[in-house]
């Protein structure tokens, strides 16, 4: 159900511009790994290389290896579409399909992957919405459009949609930055529950959030504007926030820059 990610020597480009340089790291299964760092340091770009969403951007391409257990996501003969079915993603702004009902939103990924009986579909949708702590709020209006929910509910709907297809890994790109504190808390609690089943990688600008939800934290930085972003260090979250091994990390954590 949850797989280990092993990245080695990964660089990503937008056309000729190198956005991230030579990143290697391991993401442990059934844990939460947080990416922190100043804006433009490439943490979101790096996240998007993990499910091959980076190359959707015109000119985007990648060098290096991303191993999901023992399979290289960038190997020849790997279908990026199949990768994205295995590695789910939640975005910064909640993006439920506006024309679909709540039910259809959650079922969307399942319908792409194959045919399900109506009863099966109903069970999975219920299970996913319960998994996203949204079931009690929406069970009476599953046929209403998803865009009618509040921002926090929409984001949980997107999480339900992502986990409905039982991915190996769940990537979250600043999932709470468009939400109010109460919705943020709900999502953070949910992340704590989801890590029992999935490998979770979360990009966040909020260091308290990284400290609260993650087991391991990776700090990214860039030498100067226009330079590619680099991984400075990755370690146990507790260590990163108390006694990091690199000075730049400590400066960032303690608010001396960034």
């Amino acid at each position: 159900m949850a797989k280990r990610i092993d990245v080695s020597g990964l660089s990503a480009y937008y056309g000729n511009h190198k956005a991230i340089d030579d990143i290697s790291m391991t993401v442990e299964p059934r844990s939460v790994t947080a990416f922190i760092g100043p804006s433009g340091c490439g943490k979101s770009t790096f996240l998007r290389t993990l499910n091959r969403m980076h190359e959707v951007t015109p000119g985007g391409h990648v060098e290096g290896k991303v191993m999901l257990d023992d399979e290289n996501l960038y190997g020849s003969g790997v279908d990026p579409v199949a990768v994205r079915r295995t590695v789910g993603m939640v975005f910064q702004r909640p993006n439920p399909f506006p024309t679909m009902s709540i039910f259809d939103n959650v079922a969307a990924g399942l319908r792409l992957n194959g045919s399900y009986k109506k009863s099966e579909l109903k069970d999975i949708v219920e299970k996913s919405l319960k998994g996203a702590n949204l079931w009690n709020e929406v069970k009476d209006r599953l046929n209403k459009p998803g865009s009618g929910l509040s921002g926090g509910q929409q984001q949980r709907l997107c999480i339900a949609r992502a986990i409905a297809v039982e991915p190996q890994v769940l990537l979250m790109d600043e999932p709470c930055s468009a939400l109010d504190p109460i919705s943020t808390l709900a999502i953070e609690d949910l992340i704590g529950e989801l890590k029992e089943r999935f490998t979770i990688v979360i990009v966040t600008h909020n260091m308290q959030q990284a400290a609260r939800v993650s087991d391991r934290t990776a700090f990214f930085n860039l030498a100067a504007v226009g330079q590619p972003g680099k991984l400075i260090e990755i370690d146990e979250t507790e260590r990163i926030f108390s006694n990091p091994s690199v000075q730049a990390t400590e400066d960032y954590i303690s608010g001396r820059f960034g």
């Binding site: 969403m53 079915r85 789910g88 975005f91 997107c158």
Partner: peptide, 15 residues
Amino acid sequence: VPKMHEEAALALGAT
């Protein structure tokens, strides 16, 4: 069409 709607589908493994 907003990029984020298209990415929503892409991230689910849509062709």
